[in-house]
């Protein structure tokens, strides 16, 4: 008997969320197969890549990133440079300087940075907070207000502050809401339901179901992504049909494989190569499990992952 391909068809499609305005937009989600299973059905959208820059500029970045932005004086300059890098679909501005345990920059200052960046580039923008739930509640709400009309994605609303961020971004200022939960399908679902009860349009929500670097508890992320996609597509679970965005760079650039110096680990070789491959392999593993968009940092990683996405499309 000859082999007959049995196709896996789903009756559900991941919602498409468009970030940005005018002709400079990017669409996240829209798939109706498991990741890259184009043989099962033609897929509408392919995975997207964002490039991460920080309000702190380049002071904390490794040399290989400083080189990319050589000559840039301001964060807005960096933004202009970032969006010209091959393979980049959207810009991600991280307002990490707001962290009360770090630089603790005031909200007004950070909002001004976000405004400056948004005015400098005509490109889809994601704004990430500082991870402190209280500060982010105020910060991201103010950013949502300041960037009205730009259709930006604000990351992230968590269980502790979704009411503030969801209300500001999703209701008052008509932006897109990132919903972040800790590597568990039920927590992801619960937060999406809460946002809906708050009145946020589910079509404007993108999920971050957690992130980690390859080798660092990545098993939990694999299973969470696999299960979310299976439930969304297989059971048409409306509260899980949001596209998934995974910040990869913020995890991979701090692990020891990416930071240990060549003096400390001579046998490991180039630290730049290590950081790039850690970023690439983590991003690919996330995409293979169902992430619709990854956020990366190094141009070589972005070019490689972009090329692989094209090869599989």
């Amino acid at each position: 008997m000859p082999f007959t391909k049995k196709l896996q068809k789903f009756n559900a499609t991941i919602r498409t969320v468009e970030v940005g305005t005018g002709d400079k937009t990017t669409k996240l989600g829209g798939g109706n197969t498991l990741p890259f299973y184009t043989f099962d059905a033609p897929t509408a959208n392919t995975a997207k890549i964002g490039i991460e820059i920080s309000d702190l500029g380049l002071a904390h970045e490794p040399d290989c990133i400083k080189e990319v932005y050589a000559g840039c004086e301001t964060v807005a300059d960096m933004a202009k440079k970032a969006i010209t890098i091959e393979g980049v679909d959207f810009l991600c501005l991280k307002l990490e300087g707001g962290d009360p345990n770090g630089e603790n920059r005031p909200v007004e200052e950070l909002v001004a940075v976000a405004k400056e960046v948004a005015d400098a580039v005509d490109f889809p923008i994601v704004v990430e907070g500082c991870k402190n739930v209280e500060k982010d509640a105020e910060l991201l709400s103010k950013v949502a207000e300041a960037l009205q009309g730009k259709n930006v994605l604000l990351m992230s609303a968590k269980e502790e502050n979704y009411k503030n961020i969801g209300a500001a971004a999703g209701l008052a200022y008509n932006q897109l809401v990132g919903a972040e939960s800790a590597v568990d399908i039920n927590l992801a679902k619960q937060l999406n339901v809460l946002l809906k009860q708050l009145g946020v349009d589910s079509g404007k929500v993108v999920m971050n179901v957690g992130s980690s670097a390859a080798g660092y508890g990545f098993d939990y992320l694999i299973s969470t992504l696999d299960r979310v996609k299976a439930a969304a597509l297989g059971q048409n679970d409306d509260s899980l049909l949001m596209p998934i965005i995974t910040p990869v760079a913020s995890e991979t650039w701090s692990v020891k494989e990416s930071t240990a110096t060549e003096e400390d680990m001579p046998e490991w070789g180039s630290v730049v190569e290590r950081a790039i491959d850690m970023e690439i392999e983590t991003a690919v593993a996330c995409l293979a499990c169902g992430t619709d968009a990854v956020i990366l940092k190094h141009p070589t990683s972005i070019a490689t992952v972009s090329k692989m996405i094209s090869a599989l499309s």
Binding site: A213, A214, G215, Y216, F218, I222, T252, E257, E267, W268, G269, S270, E273, R274, I276, D277, M278, I280, E281, T282, V284, A285, A288, C289, T304, V305, M308
Partner: peptide
């Protein structure tokens, strides 16, 4: 990238040209 892809999706043996620590560290962790 492809070694990670085929580790995730169903490669029992993945053949590379060579293996550097840069490639190996995330791959074996994954």
């Amino acid at each position: 990238a492809l070694a990670a892809l085929f580790t995730m999706k169903y490669g029992s043996v993945v053949v590379m040209e060579e293996m550097s620590y840069a490639q190996a560290l995330p791959l074996y962790g994954l």
